[in-house]
Amino acid sequence: CHSECLGNCSQPDDPTKCVACRNFYLDGRCVETCPPPYYHFQDWRCVNFSFCQDLHHKCKNSRRQGCHQYVIHNNKCIPECPSGYTMNSSNLLCTPCLGPCPKVCHLLEGEKTIDSVTSAQELRGCTVINGSLIINIRGGNNLAAELEANLGLIEEISGYLKIRRSYALVSLSFFRKLRLIRGETLEIGNYSFYALDNQNLRQLWDWSKHNLTITQGKLFFHYNPKLCLSEIHKMEEVSGTKGRQERNDIALKTNGDQASCENELLKFSYIRTSFDKILLRWEPYWPPDFRDLLGFMLFYKEAPYQNVTEFDGQDACGSNSWTVVDIDPPLRSNDPKSQNHPGWLMRGLKPWTQYAIFVKTLVTFSDERRTYGAKSDIIYVQTDATNPSVPLDPISVSNSSSQIILKWKPPSDPNGNITHYLVFWERQAEDSELFELDYCLKGLKLPSRTWSPPFESEDSQKHNQSEYEDSAGECCSCPKTDSQILKELEESSFRKTFEDYLHNVVFVPRKT
């Protein structure tokens, strides 16, 4: 048989008469490798580009789960590009990614509803959504962080984005990388972005840091009482949809009607710091009717980097990364020049730590249904340095008659930039024990000054392991946590139920 035959053949030295091919099969003959313009397919066939392209389009058009959109890589027609490569849609070739590779997620039936953290986790790592997304989240724990972890990498949506009755959302900033909504599939009414009845939605994105392009379709905003109209108009300008909307697409009466839409800028007039305090004062603000001013709200939190936005980490279910302080308005003076500047002394802060701070007014709604208010920009203030805590785990070892090696770990709280350490030492008198000992005694162990690591005695271990207080009263049991108490109650309830079950099964009433 021919060298490319495997198993047997019907005619000697003829690659077209093989029972099976050793390498690849091409047009009725066995070959060692697939010549151009053919590609290896499933490690035994040679196919042309049209064959591989037909497989790709067949799966793409069917949208069946589990099928493969075949691509070409290293002269092979394979189910998908290997790690580190992405497909070129024009020629199906796998090309190296520039940075992290995109991950295209194809949605069944063309859309997916995100109504819980669990459903959001199914899209973790996706960068391109081939379909439409509907966000409908009523509640949950730590929602802002969970949504950002699972949806934060999405850069492109081919269909539309719909935010509907998501009472738990305060902001859409968890879509931190969303840059493009194509609108290839539109919501009824030709809408590519749809926001309806979101009672706590206050911000779409921080438009000073976020760009969003909507290729096709219109915007729809109705019944978002805490979303200011200025935020919607800003989205029109940034996304390129200005002029597409009709009169009733953006409701003037049901958007922002319960919001404090600040239209003035508060400026800080005085800032002073110490290692654990920050004193702030800002310019006074009074609405047209000074009785509408209820006070100020001061927001602050630790910020290692200057990239904080107002609604980071917030949701309507209680999660809030900001510390909020309510401040009463100052006494009002008739003389504008003698107006008191409101302020606040922030206490209990960490030394040498940068804080993000902003302040906003708290006002009631005027009778004319106009909203007044003022808010400052987010500023960054760093507390002063102070003395560091003591170095940890000092170790001293003498390696000769004239040297001592000293080692330690950095302090747990540096409280500033540590530039150097101060080492103090003092000579001590020799131990009298060394002169009084009889060095001729056998088995004498000389006193040693070398360091030995501390260890816990058996008594201390027994005390720590004991669940009861000892007789001397030195140790006591740790208080039980809520989960331990709940577990004990469940076990007790189970024992009672099981005992009742045994009584009912074992003891049967005697027939009379």
Rank of each mutant, 00 (worst) to 15 (best):
L133T: 01
I379L: 08
S166Q: 04
I232L: 07
V238A: 06
K337R: 07
R291M: 14
Y194A: 10
D276A: 07
N263G: 15
I379D: 01
G318V: 05
F311T: 14
E148I: 12
T386L: 03
L153V: 10
K253Q: 10
H341E: 10
A195R: 00
R179F: 12
K350T: 10
F221M: 12
K226G: 06
E262A: 14
D335K: 09
I405S: 04
Q121A: 05
A144E: 15
A251I: 03
L345K: 03
S158P: 00
L201H: 00
L108K: 11
G189E: 03
I395P: 01
H210Y: 08
T254G: 11
W205A: 02
P391N: 01
D257S: 02
L293F: 09
N130L: 09
L108P: 14
L107H: 14
K253P: 10
L147S: 02
W322Y: 14
I114Q: 00
N141I: 10
V104M: 12
L252I: 14
I157E: 00
T254M: 11
A120V: 08
V238W: 13
D335R: 11
W322G: 02
S260E: 10
D328E: 15
P330W: 14
K409L: 12
F175Y: 02
S321R: 13
L279T: 02
G295Y: 07
Y305F: 09
L108A: 09
D312F: 11
A316M: 10
M297R: 03
A168P: 15
R369H: 02
N255M: 03
L153A: 12
V397R: 07
T118K: 03
L294E: 05
D289R: 05
E262S: 05
L349R: 03
L212E: 00
S400L: 13
L252C: 13
D312V: 13
R176F: 05
T309Q: 11
F311A: 12
R369I: 11
T386Q: 03
F296A: 11
K234T: 10
Y223S: 12
E109F: 02
K253L: 08
Y380T: 07
P391S: 01
D367V: 02
L186D: 10
D393C: 14
S333A: 05
R370S: 04
I134M: 04
T273V: 03
K103E: 09
L178V: 09
T127M: 15
C317P: 04
K209C: 14
S171F: 09
S333C: 07
E111S: 02
W207P: 03
L349M: 09
P351M: 07
K407V: 13
G131N: 03
C105W: 01
D292F: 13
V397Q: 08
L180K: 09
V104Y: 08
E368F: 13
T254A: 08
W352I: 15
E122G: 15
D289E: 03
I327R: 02
G183N: 00
R202K: 06
T118P: 05
N190Q: 15
F365R: 02
L298H: 01
R164V: 05
G110K: 11
R247P: 05
G240Q: 15
E368N: 00
E122C: 05
T241Q: 07
V128Y: 12
E264V: 03
C126K: 01
T273L: 04
E264S: 11
T127R: 07
E368I: 11
L153Q: 13
D115F: 04
Q203H: 07
I379Q: 03
R332W: 02
I157V: 03
I137T: 15
N320T: 14
G343C: 06
T309I: 00
Q314Y: 02
G295W: 07
Q403H: 15
D206C: 08
S321K: 07
Y305N: 11
V104R: 02
G373C: 10
W205T: 02
E368D: 14
D292T: 04
G243W: 03
N200T: 02
S239A: 11
D292K: 01
V390G: 08
L252K: 06
L204F: 07
Q258P: 14
R164L: 14
R124S: 11
E262V: 08
N136L: 15
E148V: 09
I135Q: 00
C228P: 01
E156Q: 14
N142T: 07
S338G: 05
S158K: 04
K242A: 06
E184I: 08
Q306K: 14
P342L: 13
S239I: 15
F365H: 03
Q339P: 12
L107R: 06
L227C: 05
I214R: 04
S338A: 13
A195K: 00
L219E: 02
A168M: 07
Q382A: 05
F193I: 11
A149R: 13
T371A: 05
V359I: 13
D289P: 07
D384L: 13
F193V: 10
S401F: 05
N387R: 10
A259L: 13
P287C: 02
R247C: 03
Q403K: 12
T323F: 09
I357H: 00
V390L: 06
T361S: 12
K218C: 04
R244M: 12
Y372P: 11
I188Y: 10
E246T: 07
I379E: 03
L201F: 07
S396L: 11
R370V: 08
H341I: 05
L147R: 01
L293Q: 08
F296N: 01
F175L: 11
D257M: 09
V381T: 09
W207C: 02
V324Y: 14
R244I: 05
K162F: 03
E310Y: 13
V128T: 10
I135V: 13
V381Y: 03
S402W: 05
K209N: 03
F290M: 06
S239Y: 04
R291H: 06
E109K: 12
E262N: 05
R244F: 06
